[in-house]
Design a protein around this nucleic acid. Structure first.
Length: 141
RNA sequence: CGAGUCAGCCAAGAUGAUCGCUGCCUGUGACGAAAAUGAUCAGGGGGAGGAAAGUCCGGGCUCCACAGGGCAGAGUGCCAGCUAACGGCUGGGGGGCGUGAGCCCACGACAAGUGCAGCAGAGAGGAGACCGCCAACCUCGGUUGGUAAGGGUGAAAGGGUGCGGUAAGAGCGCACCGGGCCGCUAGUAAUAGUCGGUUGCAAGGUAAACUCCACUCGGAGCAAGACCAAAUAGGGUUCUAUCAUUUUAAAUAAUGAACGCGUGGCCCACGUUGGAACCGGGUAGGUUGCUUGAGCCAUAGAGCGAUUUAUGGCCUAGACGAAUGAUUAUCACUUUCUUCGGAAAGGACAAAACCCGGCUUAUAGGCUGACUCACUCA
RNA sequence: CGGCGAUUAGCGCAGUUUGGUAGCGCACUUGGUUUGGGUCCAAGGGGUCGCAGGUUCAAAUCCUGCAUCGCCGA
């Protein structure tokens, strides 16, 4: 029987936890999510969520996305190594169905775990994304 | 049956299953000498709203300030009541809309004072002669005077209709209607009146213009405030005494040395030369404030009503990178398709953050009651 | 969660106090100057004044309610 619990020891609780991960993390992304991750010295994986008000306007939609992410993490955490993950969202998530988001998240957990393995190639140094705005302007709405 | 008005209620459709989150209660009881605290695990029964929203008002609560009063500033604005309070609600008055049930209204004062009204128009406020009308004069087209009935301008032109009157006109006079003032009556009052008297009508609009009048208001907000408090740096007190020598009551003073900074190196200049204990401020972090309250339900009484009194019963979320969820089964409901077996899709607005009373805004639908209008039948 | 401010032409801003005509700079268009371009000169176009109600004869301006953007407080 797998352990599916999700207590406080599996979450990132303070700003210092978060800022550690923002410094040179491994990255994985889909059109609606971005994951940042780093190995930790605990025995378990840990999860933190950032759902910006700028990206998702309504409070009940923010809650829905956070719940889905936590639920997905809870069901998949036994496949993860000891890493800290921060999940960020992009604009447009609130228009997607629960089913679609769950599918994307399940893929992402596997992907981020691969990239955090010690043998994996080091990610390029964290730079400011060049000309991100120019690129997004080209994309059709 | 159709159209409509008002009031109230429900709201991720209902019931299960599996896997989770959270705080409460009961048991367990790690660490610890023990007590206390209560880690962990198990069980039980709770766990978003009518607007939780906007933050537009009002209050509780907390801290700060404060003799008393006034000014300034802000707000409210028909009258009476309700309330902890209000810009809210109830009842009444007045005005407007609707055939009606009903709905809407910042609705004090411009006769205290000041201001504003572009353009047009003769004239924009105790006025005025552009056209017209009338009279006089003359060069027959004008001049002077009278005149507010008619035309024209404007959002707005200084009571209305009729008769008399007049050179033409005019509240100039009269009748009726309307208005002002004083009184009477009804009403707590706003206000009302087939009421009485008086007044030719003189001062029109605008106060979401300044202003005046009446009433209200100290400021900030739970990120308020209270308590505990690591590391690092720094402050104070005491003791000891530093790397050496001399000196002094005393690390009191002086010299040298060392180290740091700077340099390829040197000189000069600058700075530092330990340790211990205690004290207070205070950051990260934690605890508290934190949910029993102007509370909810039922019955009875008072009141037209808002509301209130009495008795009985009930306890109904307290999170903090922030819980209240996900998947699935069966059964209902709506729409579409249909080979009438079924299949597919769908269910609003929206998430507590100290707590209440209101207002405003968003909202798929469903249910209940009262009433109005139209038509038909009896 | 609480407390504040702003929204006017493609861009940056006046005008709002005291209600009647929406203006300035850059940019844009046309013409002139020049061999041509720039500079310079002259003329011109372009604005539901964030949205919806109300007060008023008349609203960018006064009042009310919404929307969007931004700032501050641990």
């Amino acid at each position: 029987m797998e352990d599916f619990s999700f207590g406080r020891e599996l979450r990132l609780l303070t700003p210092s936890h978060y800022s550690r991960i923002f410094n040179e993390p491994a990255r994985a992304a889909t059109p609606y999510f971005t994951l940042l991750a780093k190995p930790n010295d605990q025995e378990k994986p840990r999860l933190g969520l950032t759902v910006a008000k700028k990206r998702v306007k309504k409070a009940c939609q923010r809650n829905r996305i956070k719940r889905l992410a936590r639920e997905s993490f809870r069901l998949n955490k036994h496949n993860l190594d000891n890493i800290d993950i921060v999940l960020m969202v992009k604009s447009g998530v609130d228009e997607q169905s629960n089913e679609e988001l769950t599918k994307q998240l399940t893929k992402l957990w596997r992907k981020i775990n691969e990239r955090c393995k010690p043998g994996a190639p080091k990610p390029p140094p964290f730079k400011k994304r060049p000309n991100k705005s120019a690129k997004s302007n080209k994309q059709p709405r």
